[in-house]
């Protein structure tokens, strides 16, 4: 199946109450249920559950930010990443 190549991926980190992050990213590191894993551009489609831990995001300017989460689900599809977070530990 042909999929266009992108330089960046579009990342959304959402809680039921607000969007924690929305924008382009270069690298995302997630606390998967089987351990931490990184998602880079043009990753194949996947769905994974997340454990308690930190999400590391490197955006297109190279700025790195962290989000503490207690659990959630991530969907990666066509360079769009949606992270559904139960609630963020930081308020």
């Amino acid at each position: 199946m042909y999929r266009p190549k992108y330089q960046y991926m579009f990342l959304d980190i959402i809680t039921p109450e607000k969007k924690l992050f929305s924008g382009e990213a270069e690298l995302v590191k997630l606390p998967g249920s089987a351990g931490y894993f990184e998602v880079l551009t043009n990753h194949s489609p996947m769905i994974s559950t997340l454990m308690e831990g930190k999400i590391k995001v490197k955006d297109v300017h190279g700025t790195i930010s962290y989000f503490d989460i207690v659990g959630g689900v991530v969907e990666v599809l066509n360079n769009k990443i949606a992270v559904l977070v139960d609630s963020s530990a930081i308020d």
Binding site: P16, A34, P45, I47, T49
Partner: peptide, 28 residues
């Protein structure tokens, strides 16, 4: 729909975490 996903850990486990979530969202 698109169903060619890599699933981690597996469908049933993911379902087990997603269904309670969707119930909580429905309540909220």
């Amino acid at each position: 729909y698109f169903s060619d996903y890599i699933l981690e850990p597996n469908v049933l486990e993911i379902m087990k975490t997603i269904i309670p979530k969707s119930l909580k969202i429905q309540f909220f």
